[in-house]
Amino acid sequence: MLTIILKEALLGSFSSIKNIIMIVIPIMIAMEILKDSGIFEKIADLFSPLVKIFGMKKESGFPLVIGILIGISYGAGVIFETAKQENLPERDLYLLTYFLVACHAIIEDTAIFTAIGANGALLLITRLFVASLFTFLASRIIKDKNKIKMSAEV
C-alpha cells in the first residue's frame, strides 16, 4: 500500500518536475540575459510612460514593469530604491503595489503553469488586462491626499 503510494507520488511529481525544468531553466537563463544586457531596463523605460493613464509619475513605471516581469520581492526592492531616489508620491506607491499584488512575476508563473498544462497565453493576457483595469479604477478612487499613514519608512 505505502509503496504504491510512494511510487505514484514520486513518478507523478518527477514527471512534472521534469516538465518544469525543461521550461524554467531556459526561461531563467533568458531572464538573466535580459537583465544583464539592460533589455529589462529598456522595456521598463519603454512602457513606464503608460502609467500616466493611472495618473502616476513616469518614474513610477520602472519599478512597476520590473515587478510585473520579475516578481514582487525583487519588485519591492526596486520600489523602495526608486521611491527614495525619485521621491515617488504616496499615491503612486499604493497604485503600483495594488497592480503588483494582482499581477507579478509573469515570466516565472506563466512558465510553471504552462509546464503543468495550463493555457499560458490566456493566463498572461487575463492577468495583465485585469490588473490594469483594476489599477485604473483604483486610480480614479485614490485621491492625491491620502489619509492612510505609511506604516513603514520607504
Binding site: 524554467v24 526561461i27 537563463i29 531572464m31 540575459i33
Partner: peptide, 14 residues
C-alpha cells in the same frame, strides 16, 4: 557569468 547565473537561478527555482 550571465549564463551561469541563469542556470543557477533556474536550478534554484526547480
Amino acid at each position: 557569468n550571465t549564463l551561469k547565473r541563469g542556470l543557477i537561478s533556474g536550478i534554484n527555482v526547480t
